[in-house]
């Protein structure tokens, strides 16, 4: 294996889980998330000679998010309830409840709103960087983020109410 390829494999192994999860947060679909991460990594590999000494992870993340924002228009899907992935955590019930809550609240957002929420609160990027990565103004990031959080709050309250009503 060429040196560049070995470097890329090391990078991809380190980055893939987080990229897949970010894609999952944006789509709600594990298969779609894996496809998107694979696409982002393939494009990263295609440009590897150029970016490997730069911010390769940032490059892959930008490809991933823009790929999903541009290409994914369907509403977020529910998790298959029978699918409980391997977890390190002990309380599987809590884990499933958290996933359901997350699915419910992210499901009300548009693709761009989800992208901004994921970049801001999962990757913890500052607003200016989110704006650059999505090629929008900082004002758009602020207003969209605020709108998204308002939706999340109202949806979160309803989700809690529903959860309590079911008990």
């Amino acid at each position: 294996m060429a040196r560049g390829d070995a470097e890329f494999v090391e990078f991809a192994r380190a980055a893939s889980a987080r990229l897949v999860h970010a894609a999952f947060l944006m789509t709600g679909d594990h298969h779609r998330a894996e496809d998107a991460a694979q696409t982002a990594l393939a494009r990263t590999y295609a440009s590897w000679s150029r970016i490997r000494d730069d911010d390769a992870y940032g490059y892959a993340r930008r490809i991933l998010v823009n790929h999903l924002v541009d290409g994914w228009r369907r509403p977020i899907r529910e998790y298959p309830t029978e699918e409980v992935p391997e977890q390190r955590r002990d309380d599987v019930a809590d884990e499933v409840a958290t996933r359901r809550w997350l699915t419910a609240i992210l499901g009300v957002l548009s693709p761009r709103e989800r992208a901004i929420v994921v970049l801001r609160y999962y990757f913890d990027l500052p607003e200016a960087q989110v704006a650059r990565e999505l090629d929008v103004s900082v004002g758009t990031v602020k207003s969209t983020s605020s709108r998204a959080l308002e939706k999340l709050r109202s949806t979160g309250e309803r989700a809690v109410d529903t959860e309590e009503a079911c008990r």
Binding site: S16, V20, H21, R89, R99, L102
Partner: peptide
């Protein structure tokens, strides 16, 4: 929630 639902084993 976004962090605890990560799947460490997820790979491509």
């Amino acid at each position: 929630a976004m962090r605890v639902t990560e799947r460490p084993g997820a790979t491509v």
